[in-house]
Nucleic acid binder design. Structure first.
Lengths: 210, 210
DNA sequence: GGGGCAGTCAATCGAAAGGTTGATGTCGGC
DNA sequence: GCCGACATCAACCTTTCGATTGACTGCCCC
């Protein structure tokens, strides 16, 4: 047998780290070589080259976000592969993670076998997406009619933060007419007829995160 | 030494269950006697009297909510104590859990020692609140000026679901004037001036959950 | 190179939301 | 018994939002 796969666990929850360790360290071809409770620490540890695969949470209590950390880690030459392991499957999160160079995106409610399989896939240099996540991306591809454009998502996110059309127009250097125009398209795609219900629908479909 | 404290782990995430088992089973006076991946199963297992303390998540993927399960468990005579162990500290969740008869409310990012201490406290029949949670409740008591009333929270929750004043008034059997009146008070307490920003502020302060 | 889509903007109109003032009834505490 | 907090409702007015229509640009794809 060859060298075991070295793992770095990056999660701010001690319980989750212990759980991952318990689940993964029992696999003979895995070895947990380090843990990080913050994204910053994960970046620093990954840079030392101690591990082959990083299991990265997206939400840390404070400080750097998991997607930023992923980008920082994968930017280096000879970087370890980064597997996102998070609770929520929001479209925005998935896209951000993939753009940041993540090799995979898993949900924390995944069964241990799936987890182990994804780690091996990532270590081999291939992409690993959880079935739910892959399905969501397929959906997004298959029905582009109801997929919001980048600009529309941008407007919707600001609406979700409680901004008025006036405030949004200033923030994005647009006229109010344009903001309204985007909103009309958003409402049509989401099947709603008000800003609050658009935010509710988008949150439910995990188009935006709260 | 006396009988060890029997624990039931109720969480839909295998990784979290493994983590809790790893963290708690090493304590000599604890013994994990059962696990449940759903709230329904947790209620059934708790009814058999196998455990002294239930560690209960609030959000399960589908089906019964943790707060409902807590109410069902604590309703029985000679019921085990229920410790809520969740990711978020929303006011609404905490109040619901306490009303359901929970003996304590902990956050998943708690260090293992705190966890163990809370379990012992609960097993001894006393209340165990995480410092952050206790602090939040203190705040709520100390500054009742900005604490929303039950009715106001009810209205705000419906606003967050995207309902119009008209729809809310019908749902709660009120006039629109009353709904507006509640909203005016909500805006004042949250320091905002629109329904969407009220939802945003309430979400940020975890007054309502998404 | 024409058609479709995304993004931008304008004008208009009715509906909804927000601000203000004021009023009533109930409940609990001092 | 009185006062304050809560909940309820009404009338009025202003602002914002949403719906509609139409138009111009840049871009990609066939």
């Amino acid at each position: 047998m060859t060298e075991p796969i070295g793992l770095l666990l990056a999660d701010d929850h001690p319980v989750v780290r212990a759980g991952l360790r318990a689940v993964l360290d029992t696999e003979p071809d895995f070895r947990v070589v380090a843990e990080a409770a913050t994204a910053e620490r994960a970046v620093a540890l990954a840079a030392t080259g101690v591990c082959d695969v990083v299991l990265m949470d997206l939400q840390f209590g404070s400080g750097m976000h998991g997607a930023e950390a992923t980008a920082a880690i994968t930017a280096a030459p000879d970087a370890p592969r980064v597997l996102i392991l998070t609770t929520y499957d929001s479209d925005a999160d998935i896209l951000a993670a993939v753009e940041a160079g993540a090799a995979g995106y898993l949900l924390k409610d995944a069964p241990p076998e799936e987890l182990a399989a994804a780690v091996r896939t990532a270590a081999a240099g291939r992409s690993a997406l959880a079935p739910e996540v892959a399905h969501r991306l397929m959906d997004r591809m298959r029905t582009p009619a109801q997929a919001l454009t980048k600009r529309e998502l941008e407007v919707l996110r600001l609406v979700g933060e409680g901004l008025s059309n006036q405030q949004i127009s200033k923030k994005l250097f647009l006229s109010q007419a344009t903001v309204k125009s985007h909103l009309v398209h958003i409402y049509a795609k989401l099947g709603v007829d008000s800003r609050t219900s658009a935010v509710a629908a988008a949150t439910a479909r995990r188009l935006i995160r709260r």
